[in-house]
Design a binder for these strands. Structure first.
Length: 745
RNA sequence: GGGCGGUUAGCUCAGUUGGUAGAGCGCGUCAUUGACGUUGACGAUGUCAGAGGUUCGAAUCCUCUACCGCCCACCA
């Protein structure tokens, strides 16, 4: 028996060298598995992409949870005999990364990005991204992830950039991407637009003012936007205002003097709310914008992109919003136009990354039109025919409704559908520097009139110009300064990582991917967008299954956050409780969609389990001698019974594994190993083994050895390190456990 | 306002297609120098949130109620 096995199990001593052995074997790469004959060359393909971690920081317990589940899936499929590919990568995370670095340079030298300039700043961001990338990769290896590193990708590398530009151009040519003056979420702090999903609503206590507006009383929380309000809107059925007609003009005294207002009747008005009358500010409110569009009304900008009032505000011009609000109310009070003020709590929109208060603005931006009809050119989707008129929305709904894409747990299918139905055009341009540059160039034919502008969209810059030219004189092509929303490139991830737009073997073999495993919090951000991009661009679903996991919480069920101080560093936990222990603790008892509550007690429990496995293995190997192969035919009757039960147990575990019930499989194998194998079978065998040579002793040895080796296989996806280590110490050991065949009956 | 979950042992949670409840930690008693004290044996603890219904039978299916949580949304 191996000398190592006589000592207590020391994970830190073994984990690194085991991982190195796996890497050196090349078996993380399915091509190598086929080449070396461990995987049949006609085997089915299994593929999964790693949700690329943001290079904004290092991994947290949530990432560890994700990695644990995915590595279980991958190792199971590899042992099951499939050509199994797990593609690694990281995400540049545009705004998130840029704003981190901006904070850093502010802290270091009190500078902002404009002090450095675009090129210099980007170098700084890339350095930051590289540092985090390296730490992240290290962490993933520590977790034992069997990722094919030879295929690693980055959302902002050259190949992915080509994919992005190619999709952009295709969408542009199809009229799905358009540029237009639409209302967008403007973050005055980050000086960029953001998408609806990047908004975080915060409750804020404010005042609700009732203002006299001619013959009407209007309610508002934002008097500072009211300067340009010259439309007063009410419901057409509101009897209180029946005497006023749509389009009627009225003169009234307002903030900076007399104005003429126009009455508009619109059904979107809630008669129950406030006085049932409101004035509108189309430039700075989505609802108001839509009313204005319906009635073809004028729109006027009141607030600039730094959050200051424009000259339309008269004496309040140049003031910041908060300051102006008070002063305006003071003035209105003096004019006796404030009738009442109430305390009010409303949800204010803030930017997720910068914390800035979102100010809706009408801006000229790039959008993806989700409702635009186009002719579908692929005949590869089961429920959408070639030549059929579709919209992106329809594509996204269809593949989930028809179960081409299956979400686990399926309750999220309802949430998905609901979300898509309410989806609006996706604003994809960002006024930041870190990201994929929009592949569009402009040339004004007349320097004095920017409306005479030529637009060129292409993978490469238009030929007539020197691409390095930064001159902006008339007649020169100038590239759009904006970059793309980070989710644009993430949306392509399943096929861009496989080499698209090149027609690669990988793309042919591994797409659609088999399963996507990710957190339910990014179902809309990411999963929906991958479905959009993949069905539109290549006519394929991106994946057949979506397995959603929950959030990792502390033992009180709270979110892990820095401010609560309940942050757990995965590397620290791995060092303390072993990778195998951490993986098990995260997995047991947390089903799909469920939140994993993690505590040191739980981690401790599964470290103990690793110890139990080690010691039980030692007992078995000490007693069986130099076993070279099984002969289960010699088992005595009672051992045959145990063997039969074990086979049933194996089938049960296999069924759980195939049906994404890893939490059950993990718990069952744990329970069987400890409380059936160790507590009952081994204990009984102890008595048997004390006998002298006879049938029963030989039977017990065969049984013990067989059960141990088979259980190592069942345990391997969950606890890869310790099982691989013990496997290497078996008397008839050959090859790596990671590519052993999964037990079947 | 709309949608989706949850409510099971002291705590954290499982319970796949309905068959009179399980795990870990914790607790109690005992055992053991022989794989392991990161141990073993035995044990206590639950009207499975409440009410009604379907069924031979419900934690599990249906309806309602209560409380907790999450997500979405343009109530000025």
């Amino acid at each position: 028996m191996s000398e190592e096995l006589k000592k207590p199990y020391n994970p830190t001593e073994h984990e690194e060298s085991i991982y190195r052995k796996w890497e050196e074997s090349g078996f993380f790469n399915p091509d190598v598995c086929v080449e070396k004959g461990v995987t049949d060359k006609n085997a089915d393909y299994f593929s999964i992409v790693l949700p690329p971690p943001n290079v904004t920081g290092t991994l947290h317990m949530g990432s560890a949870f994700m990695l644990a589940i995915e590595d279980v899936i991958v190792r199971f499929n590899r042992m099951w005999g499939k050509k199994t590919l797990w593609i690694p990568g990281t995400d540049h995370a545009a705004i998130a990364t840029q704003s981190k670095v901006e904070k850093l340079i502010q802290k270091e030298g009190g500078k902002n990005r404009h002090d450095l300039g675009r090129e210099e700043f980007l170098k700084r961001v890339e350095k930051f991204a590289k540092e985090n990338h390296d730490i992240i990769i290290h962490q993933m290896k520590k977790m034992g992830c069997s990722l094919d590193w030879s295929r690693e990708a980055f959302t902002l590398d050259e190949k992915r950039n080509l994919a992005v530009k190619t999709v952009f151009k295709k969408m542009y040519d199809d009229g799905i991407i358009y540029r237009g003056h639409r209302i967008v979420n403007w973050d005055p702090k980050g000086q960029t637009t953001i998408s609806d999903d990047e908004i975080v609503y915060q409750e804020q206590k404010t005042k609700f003012y009732y203002l006299q507006y001619g013959p009407f009383v209007i309610g508002t929380t934002r008097p500072e936007t009211k300067f340009g309000d010259k439309y007063v809107v009410m419901h057409p059925d509101d009897k209180r205002y029946a005497s006023y007609k749509d389009g009627q003009k009225i003169d009234l005294e307002w903030i900076n003097g007399p104005i003429t207002a126009t009455i508009i009747k619109d059904e979107s008005i809630d008669m129950e709310f406030g006085t049932g009358v409101m004035t509108i500010t189309p430039w700075h409110s989505v609802v108001d914008f839509e009313i204005a569009e319906r009635h073809n009304l004028d729109k006027e900008q009141i607030i600039d992109k730094y959050g200051r009032l424009l000259p339309v505000a008269g004496e309040f011009s140049e003031m910041k919003i908060v300051e102006a609000r008070e002063k305006i109310i003071e003035k209105l009070k003096k004019k006796s136009l404030v009738l009442k003020e109430e305390d009010y709590t409303n949800n204010v929109a803030t930017a997720e990354r910068t914390g800035g208060f979102i100010e809706p603005q009408i801006m000229n931006q790039w959008f993806i039109d989700v409702n635009k009809e186009f002719t579908y050119i692929f005949d590869t989707l089961p429920n959408i025919k070639k030549g059929e008129k579709v919209t992106l929305k329809k594509l996204m709904l269809s593949v989930v409704e028809n179960k081409n894409v299956n979400i686990i747990p399926d309750r999220f299918e309802k949430e998905y559908t609901h979300w898509i139905e309410n989806l609006r055009d996706w604003c994809i341009s960002r006024q930041i520097w870190y990201g994929h540059r929009i592949p569009v160039w402009y040339r004004s034919t007349n320097t004095h009139n920017r409306s005479n502008e030529e637009i060129y969209c292409g993978i490469e810059a238009p030929k007539e110009i020197d691409p390095d030219s930064v001159k902006t004189t008339a007649g020169e092509w100038v590239q759009d300064g904006d970059t793309l929303d980070t989710w644009f490139s993430s949306g392509l991830w399943t096929f861009s990582t496989l080499g698209w737009p090149e027609k690669t073997e990988d793309l042919k073999n591994y797409h659609p991917t088999t399963v996507l495993e990710t957190g339910y919090d990014i179902l809309f951000f990411w999963v929906a967008r991958m479905i959009l991009m993949s069905t539109y661009t290549i006519g394929q679903i991106p994946f057949t299954y979506v397995y959603l996991h929950g959030m990792v919480r502390d033992n009180q069920g709270r979110k892990i956050s820095k401010s609560l101080g309940n942050n757990i560093d995965p590397l620290e936990m791995l060092a303390k409780y072993s990778a195998d222990g951490v993986r098990m603790a995260l997995l047991v008892g947390t089903g799909p969609g469920g939140d994993s509550k993690i505590s040191e007690e739980k981690l401790k429990a599964y470290k103990h389990f690793a110890n139990k496995i080690w010691n039980a293995s030692r007992f078995v190997l000490e007693n069986v001698g130099n076993m070279s192969r099984f002969n289960l035919d010699i088992l005595v009757e009672k051992d045959k019974e145990i063997l039969k039960e074990f086979k049933d147990f194996t089938s049960d575990i296999t069924a759980d594994m195939e049906n994404y019930r890893f939490h059950l499989a993990a718990e069952k194998i744990y329970h069987y190993f400890w409380h059936t194998f160790a507590d009952i079978i081994i204990e009984d065998c102890k008595k048997t083994l004390r006998q002298t040579q006879d049938k029963e002793v030989e039977s017990a040895k065969q049984l013990l050895y067989y059960l141990l080796t088979e259980q190592l296989k069942l345990l391997h996806p969950f606890m890869p390190f310790i099982t691989e280590k013990i496997w290497s110490m078996l008397p008839d050991s050959k090859g790596l456990l990671m590519v052993e065949k999964w037990p079947t009956n």
